[in-house]
Every structure is written in C-alpha cells, then in structure tokens.
Design a protein around this nucleic acid. Structure first.
Lengths: 330, 330
DNA sequence: CTGAAAGCGCTTACAG
DNA sequence: CTGAAAGCGCTTACAG
C-alpha cells in the first residue's frame, strides 16, 4: 500500500501538500496540484481511512440501529439508507438491537470508540435520549418520536393513515370494524389507534372494537379468535401493521372464513410482503425505501453541519387497495 | 474522552504498561495490573478503536456482501453473522452489491482503506477471485463456489436436496413433475437442476420437464404459463428456490388451479416466507441463520489465524413438508 | 517487569 | 503558496 509519503516523494513535494490536494483545502499551485494528481493516479494511491479517521475524528461510516433485520420493514429501510450513504462515501454499520443491552451503553461505547459519524435509530430497544446526550453524535430517529433535542425525527401521518384505512373499510361496505393495535409504548401504534377511533366516532351508528396485538404475525393470529369470540359478526379488520394483517388472514383462512367476502382486512406499512401474499393485502403504504434514503440524507446533512436544530418531518401515507378488501371485485 | 495517557498518569505508570494490561500481553506485575484495572474502571476508560486500528492494522469489523438485503434470504443470514460478530467484539458492515461496481474495485478499496478484518461474500455480483488476490483479507464465501484458494466456502448439499424434493413430489402421488431452475451461472441453481434430473432418471416412466427461471417471484410466475402451455397435465412443480415457488403459487391461484390438489409445489431454501405464506410452502430447508453464524465463526477463525488453507463445508438440507404438497391432508 | 521512543498514515496550525 | 513539526491515541520492539 502506498502512503501519502510515497506520493509526496515521487511528486517532489511534502506530505502536507499532498494532503492539501487530497482534501481540496488550503492553497496549492496549479502546477504542483496537477503533478500530485498525476502521481496519485499513476501509483493508484488511496488515502488510508483509518489514519485519516484518527486525525480527523471521523470514520466515514454511519450506524443503522434496527430491532431486528428479519422484520421485513427494515431491509427496505436499510437498502435506502445504504444507497445514500454510499453515494456520499459512507459505509453502513448494521446493528440488531433486539434482546441485547437494554440501556444501550454498549452502543454508546461502540459509536464513540469507532468514531461513527452518525446514527439512524429505528428501534425502541434502546434509550434514544441517553444515546443523544451521551454521544453527541448526529442522529436521525425514525417513526416513533415526538422529537428529541438536536435530532431529526422522520415519521408518517399515522393518524391520518389509520383514518383512511378505517374509512376505506366502511367504503367497501363493512358495518362492524375492529382494530388490532400494536404495543402502545410505540408512538406509531398509539397514533394509529387514535386514527381508528376518530374515524369510528364520526359515525353515530358505529362502535369501537379494539384488541391489543404486538405487531407480530402471531399477535395477529391470536387477536382474531379474541375478536370473534365477542363479536362474531365482525366484517372488517384493520390491523395496526402488515405483519399482524398477515397473521389475521392466515388465521381466518384456517377458520375457513373468506377474505374479503366474509371479513375484509387492511394492514399498515406497505412492506413488500403485502404485494406477494395471497390474497394480496390492502394496506396504508409508507414510503419505506425513501424513508431510508431521507434518513441518511438528513443524517449526512447533520454530520456536515452539526448546528442544525431539532427537526420533525412527517411523510404522507397512501391507501393501496388490493384483494383483501376488494369485495366488489369478487 | 479519556485516553491511555490519562489512565497512565493517574495510575502512576507509563502508557506502555497500560497498553500491556489492555492487550493482556507482555509482563506486568500483579500490583500494577490491579492498580491499572481499577483506574480503568473508575474513569470508565475505553480504548479508542480507531487509534488501535491504525497501530494494529485492524478495525474489528467484518463486511457482509449480499446482492440485495431485501431478498428475504439475506436478513436471516445477516442476523446470524451479526450475532457471532458481536459476541466476538466485531461490527458488521453491510453492502448491497446489486447494480453497483461490476468488478468490485470499489469494494477492494473500501476493505483495504478501512482495515476491514474479513469479509463474507454472499453475492455473484463481484469477482471473488479478484477480491481474494487483491486484498489478501480473510474471506468466507457462501453458497456458490467450488472453493477458492485461501478461503472457506460454505454450501449446502443442493444436489441431494433437489433429489429429496423431487422424490417427495413423487411420494405424494405426482406423475408429471417439472422443475424451474435458476440462473445456471449460479452453482446452486446448477446443482439443484442436476439433482432433479437424477431423481427423474431413476424412474423409467418419467421424463424431464425443465424451464428456466431467475430466482425471483416474477420468474416463478411466468414459468408457470410456459410449462402449462406444453404440459397441461403437469401435477407437480419443483421450484429452484422459494421466491419462485411463491410466484408459482400466486400464478396458479390466479389461474384458479388449486395447490396442492391440482398441482403440488415444492420450493428450496427455507426462507421465513414459506412458513407464513398461504398455503404454507413445502421446501428444502437450509439452516440460513446458522449458516450466517458459521460463516462469521469461520471468518473470525481465519482472522485470528491467517494460515488456514482452503476449506469447503457442506451443510445438510432437510425436507419440510407443508400445505403446498399435502395432498393427503386435503 | 517497565518506560522512552518510534511508528501506524494521515491532518493542520504555524512560520516563512 | 509550501514544508517542518506536532498531534490524533494507540502498540510494540528495544534497552535496561
């Protein structure tokens, strides 16, 4: 491996001058600049990122904290984030936080010891406030917050989306609609529940039916029997996320209840699975890949300018109608 | 942030001695050792990984190269790899190789410039031989090779698995079984095709029906019409991977052909999707998560001892029978 | 057993 | 505009 000293020697200049052209900062004569660039190309020199990192306290890498990469929401997000990271010369460190290190102290250490330049937090497993105050590292938080000092929060209009979902079920003729909500410490789950309730309350002849789920397939499955026990005449189910919608449909299929003829089902998130499942699942779609890209963009913006204040970005969701609610198409 | 000098000063020793206890190498008196460890704990000292990296030419991170993390095979693999990486103090860098940088020169640069300690290659998008010869970095290759000098290859017995799948379709009463194979530059696809052919040839009354697919859902979908055009009486389909099996079932459902009553379907891989799809999909299961773990273990073994020779590990697959072939259960 | 010194490969005031 | 020097925070022969 060539070093900056090798380049300097060949070009007949000092390492400092080479460094200047590498970083495009400080004055350097056109003539030397050309000479140095030529040598760099000829010997195939690439600056050592670790050495540079030590000197500049940077690593050109950002971390993505997700609870569990096997949850299909996250690969899409990760791909979007990685795309933008790469186009800006950053690498992406992947961390699964589920089941590890409650307080996040290990992550704090990691981020600091490796000079990680920024972090995208898409998990509830660790304390974001602690992370922020203890590292001072630029941060973008996804999907789950009311905003944290010095960070950018990216979320979607869960409330509105949930209203859309509920209204859609009414539109296709459902008379009795239940909602399976996610864990309420998750802001997302809470807002969606509120949206459902609001939509129901706008109609005097409807009443709320809600049951707790946990955002997993199994949660969706077991919620079904609970609902049917008390409300055997339910004809519409709005699941708080797509994974639960999948569970719901599986369970209904097991019970020989037809979707959407007997019960129409709508999910939330827009993970790829809703498109390939059979029946294809109606859902409130979030722009997941784009959220990943935006998160990385905002993060890099903050890395380049640490003095940006708190910021909250709310993205639009949209209803995507598919087989699981297409009664009229049957 | 405290440095090793701060610790040394407080403990009344030299930085070199602190370094010795940090690395647990070289002699240091019990008394000083205790004193130093106490100070380290008290001030909460953590060695700076970047500085250490520069001195030792290491980064305590391994890279995982996958073609596309949104392909459901890879998150499971990544999770397994990350688990082992973390328990050994390594971080995981994630790289999606699809559509970027054909020759892999960018990756070569990245790996060298950041002192990446090792790399798990689970993609066809870049030239592994080039990678090996140009970086000299420890490498584990997945699923796709006959072995490369100085690397560990982990694969499954695709041939045997494909025979199992085909035989299983025969066992449940199929008389006319077609195989949709993946792209043949993929060793995996080739071996599975061979396994299918071998199983068919063992029966005089059967003949081979094969059609090319591309390991995607869409590929599975379009293969169905091709097969049905020429062989309308097909009653068993063995898809070269699970994604194609999903496509096959979706297309059959669209054509109102029942699975498994009219046509039984078997996939290959054992991705999580086969368990949650409806109908649940019979498949030849690979231990994906465990492969991720094993890859990381083998890699770390090689990082710690660079003189390990070429190695090929073949794991067993197993048949998992589910609804898509359960004719008798209907 | 221990410390001073040099080195890992860069960057960045500083002086000229 | 340019170079010598010091520094980023560790590690590792080397001498004692």
């Amino acid at each position: 491996m060539k070093t900056i000293r090798d380049v300097a020697k060949i070009a007949g200049v000092s390492p400092a001058t080479v460094s200047r052209v590498l970083n495009n900062k400080g004055y350097v004569s056109e003539e030397k600049k050309n000479r140095i660039e030529k040598v760099i190309r000829e010997v195939g020199f690439e600056p050592n990122q670790v050495a540079r990192g030590l000197a500049k306290k940077t690593s050109k890498t950002i971390a993505l904290l997700v609870s569990d990469i096997t949850n299909p929401f996250f690969p899409e997000l990760a791909k979007g984030a990685e795309h933008i990271a790469h186009s800006n010369g950053f690498s992406l460190l992947l961390e699964n936080t589920k089941g590890v290190d409650q307080e996040g102290t290990d992550y704090i250490k990691l981020l600091k010891n490796k000079y990680i330049d920024g972090v995208i937090v898409a998990t509830h497993d660790i304390d974001k406030y602690l992370l922020e105050t203890n590292t001072g590292i630029p941060m973008v938080v996804l999907e789950m917050e009311n905003g944290i000092e010095n960070t950018c929060t990216i979320k979607v209009d869960n409330f509105h989306g949930a209203m859309l979902a509920t209204q859609h079920l009414l539109d296709v003729g459902c008379k009795k609609i239940a909602h399976i909500y996610g864990p309420l410490y998750d802001q997302t789950a809470y807002e969606r529940l509120q949206g459902y309730q609001q939509a129901i309350r706008m109609h005097d002849d409807l009443s709320e039916i809600t049951v707790a789920g946990d955002f997993t397939i199994e949660g969706g499955q077991s919620a079904v029997s609970q609902i049917l026990k008390d409300y055997p005449d339910v004809d519409g189910l709005f699941a708080g996320n797509d994974l639960m919608a999948v569970g719901v449909i599986k369970e209904l299929s097991r019970l020989k209840i037809r979707v959407p003829e007997d019960i129409a089902v709508c999910g939330f998130d827009g993970i790829y699975l809703t498109r390939i499942f059979s029946p294809e699942i109606t859902t409130i779609e979030q722009p997941i890949y784009e959220m990943g890209e935006l998160a990385a963009e905002k993060l890099i913006e903050r890395i380049n300018n640490p003095y940006i204040n708190q910021e909250i970005i709310e993205l639009k969701t949209k209803l995507v109608v598919r087989e699981s609610t297409s009664k009229s198409l049957m």
